[in-house]
Design a protein around this nucleic acid. Structure first.
Length: 152
DNA sequence: GCCAACGTTGGC
DNA sequence: GCCAACGTTGGC
């Protein structure tokens, strides 16, 4: 079982949105970067655990944990002209983007801040703390997973 | 709101 | 297939 970190702007989808619907799958849609898509499509598997990371907000960092309940399938938002994620170059016959479904696991008692992760020597190789890393889907290895949660 | 660091696009 | 111009991301 692998571990991941998914970025989200809490104004779009926050850990509280997960917590409010603990029994319903959340469609993780809108990934529009090829490198992130490839991981989502090829490597993110059912039962993998995901750190939900809040970005572009006041309290930047890991807010909670979710679990993959459905592996990649065509992202419905790419076909929806009314969606902000609509892609006119994509088609149902040849979809370009994928989504996965997640379910709430738990909210952390406190956000594990980006600052805190950056100041941990153990986490220097973690993609999210590296300069210029903008991927919205990033791998987290087992050791890093433990180290991150121990910061909390 | 700024801007560095990436990613994408399109002319050649 | 190169690369300049442009667009986006996201921390600050």
């Amino acid at each position: 079982m692998a571990h991941w970190l998914f970025k989200t702007e809490p104004t779009e989808c926050s850990i509280d949105d997960f917590a409010k619907a603990p029994n319903s799958a959340i469609v993780w849609e809108g990934v529009r970067n090829y490198q992130a898509r490839n991981m989502l499509r090829d490597e993110v598997k059912k039962d993998d655990l995901v750190l939900i990371y809040h970005s572009s907000c006041k309290l930047i960092g890991v807010a909670g944990i979710a679990r993959v309940v459905r592996e990649s399938y065509p992202d419905p938002s790419q076909f929806d002209p009314l969606s902000a994620y609509y892609d006119e170059k994509s088609s149902v016959q040849k979809p370009r983007w994928v989504a996965v479904d997640l379910i709430f696991t738990r909210k952390l008692p406190a956000i594990i801040s980006l600052d805190k992760m950056k100041s941990s020597a153990k986490l220097r190789s973690l993609p999210v703390v590296q300069k210029g890393s903008r991927l919205s889907v990033m791998p987290v290895n087992d050791t890093q997973w433990q180290d991150i949660l121990h910061l909390g």
